[in-house]
Amino acid sequence: MADDALDAARADPKGLIRESFRIDGITLGECRTIFLDWALSLPDGVAPAEAMRAVLDLYAPDGAGGRRDHPMVTVLSEGLAAAARAPVRRGGRAGRFAQ
C-alpha cells in the first residue's frame, strides 16, 4: 500500500486530478485548466505521459462506476494521444521555409 501512496504522490502531487473527479458537474474547460496546473506541478524526473497513465489507473480504472465518461478522462486521454505522437524536427532549410 505504501508503494501506491508514493505513486499517487508523484503522479498527482497536489491531488488536483483526484479532486477533479470529486467535483460534481465539472466541465471539460475546467478540467483542461486543472490539467495545466497539474502538468506544471509534476516533480522533476516524472514523465508526463507516465503520470497521465498512473492517474487514469488510480482515479478512473476501467469499470469504476461510470468514471470513464468523466471530462478529466477525456483530457487525460487527449494528453496521452498527443504525447504518443513523435515530434517532428524541421531543421535547416525546411525549418526556415514553407514547402
Rank of each mutant, 00 (worst) to 15 (best):
M1P: 11
D3K: 07
D7Y: 09
A8C: 06
A9N: 14
A9T: 14
D12A: 09
D12G: 12
P13Q: 09
P13A: 13
K14L: 09
K14M: 04
R18D: 15
E19G: 05
S20R: 10
S20C: 15
R22W: 10
I23K: 14
I23P: 09
G25F: 07
I26D: 01
I26G: 02
T27R: 03
L28R: 15
C31F: 02
C31M: 02
T33K: 13
T33H: 09
I34M: 10
F35D: 07
L40G: 11
P43S: 13
D44K: 02
D44S: 03
A47Q: 10
P48A: 14
A49T: 09
E50Q: 05
E50R: 01
A51L: 07
V55L: 05
D57S: 13
A60H: 00
A60R: 00
P61R: 07
A64D: 09
A64R: 08
G65N: 10
G66S: 06
R67T: 12
R67Y: 04
R67I: 08
R68Q: 15
P71R: 04
M72I: 07
V73M: 04
V73I: 05
E78P: 02
E78K: 02
A81H: 10
A82G: 06
R85D: 10
P87G: 03
P87D: 08
V88M: 01
R90C: 11
G92Q: 11
R93L: 14
G95W: 00
R96A: 12
R96M: 13
A98L: 09
Q99F: 06
